[in-house]
Design a protein around this nucleic acid. Structure first.
Lengths: 197, 197
DNA sequence: TTACAAATAGCACGATCGTTCGTATCTTAT
DNA sequence: ATAAGATACGAACGATCGTGCTATTTGTAA
């Protein structure tokens, strides 16, 4: 039952996702997006009831992809420090993926949406809070595995890991620093080191 | 010599600055900005040759204000650790200033401009690189003052301090975490602690 | 006060925005 | 094969965008 529509919808969202990393969620335009996927403006629009719906769909697609290539992949590593390391590596790579020209959509969207109420904002903040919790939980597992000291504040750990990622993207994408990778890695190592048992 | 024009130009830029923290530099619209300051669209436009010029003017105004209320103010503290502490406090407060509804313009602009070539991007990245250097230099002074160990990597210190600020704004503004301030402060303290002599 | 320059307004331009609607063309299940 | 429903198109809407032009107002200096 009706697979055709879902296919094109996927094509649309995929292109929109890539465009949004460059131009932001508000910078997305139905018209130019339509011509890029080879649809008429109204034909594309019919797949979403509104631009806001499209934005949410893009965020949802990004979240699913992130879950796949960053989280799920990392969870194949043994719990504890190895898994956390993988998370960090994958996360860094996530924003440097060629084929996704504009880097991490979440970083762009976070700055864009933090002052605009609405469903896109709600969805994004939900995803990010969930991600924070995943990080904290991973830290907790590292304690259980004996890799981290028992008195490590896991929520604090999640906050700092998140912060390093932000610093990394900023240094890499805006400042175009050739040392961004090294800096981020060192910061992460320092974080891990002060948490170790 | 023509002080009137400069005055209204200042009024325009000031309002645009506040608007841009909410809606971004691209989200700025000449029309709505004009009606907010009580000018006609063309009357306002005449002050800047183009929208890009307006954007640069806004960034320049933000940079001057930042220099004043964050940097200069902090530099009244004695060099070394006290000054660095002040920098951090001022910087945190800078993005929470009521009267500037949308938080830190630089954070919003950084995510917005990192993929768009042009004068706004060039100006912003210049300012941010300069800020990074200021931080690194402050760390160097802390070494000279005997507050920090001599083997502290000052550029790394700047990177990590920057990163904490990003994490802070994200946690505070998007996630609306009530613990953002505490988390940022703790992260900063950990950074300072591992740098101390 | 008069003359000149600076500052602002008014109007229009082509373009594009998100959205609606009626209609046509395809898919798919019977 | 045919009816029904999904999918897409074309045209148009009012609104707003940035940006030119030409007046008109305002401020300033002689």
């Amino acid at each position: 039952m009706s697979t055709k529509g879902a296919e094109t919808r996927e094509r649309i969202v995929d292109r929109a996702f890539r465009l949004a990393t460059r131009d932001g969620l508000d910078g997305l335009s139905i018209g130019s997006l339509a011509s890029e996927v080879g649809l008429s403006k109204s034909g594309l629009f019919a797949h979403f009831g509104s631009k806001e719906d499209l934005q949410v769909a893009v965020l949802r697609a990004a979240a699913e992809r992130f879950e796949q290539v960053v989280i799920k992949q990392a969870f194949r590593a043994p719990r504890g420090l190895p898994r956390i390391r993988r998370l960090f590596e994958n996360w860094c790579r996530w924003g440097s993926d060629p084929g996704v020209p504009g880097g991490c959509l979440f970083v762009a969207a976070a700055a864009e949406l933090d002052d605009k109420e609405g469903r896109p904002r709600d969805y994004l903040s939900g995803v990010q809070i969930q991600l924070t919790e995943t990080l904290a939980k991973s830290a907790r597992l590292a304690i259980e595995a004996g890799h981290f000291r028992a008195d490590v504040d896991c929520d604090q750990f999640a906050f700092e890991m998140f912060a390093i990622i932000f610093g990394y993207y900023h240094s890499k994408r805006l400042l175009r620093s050739p040392h961004a990778d090294a800096r981020a890695e060192r910061a992460f190592e320092r974080l891990v080191e002060t948490s170790k048992a």
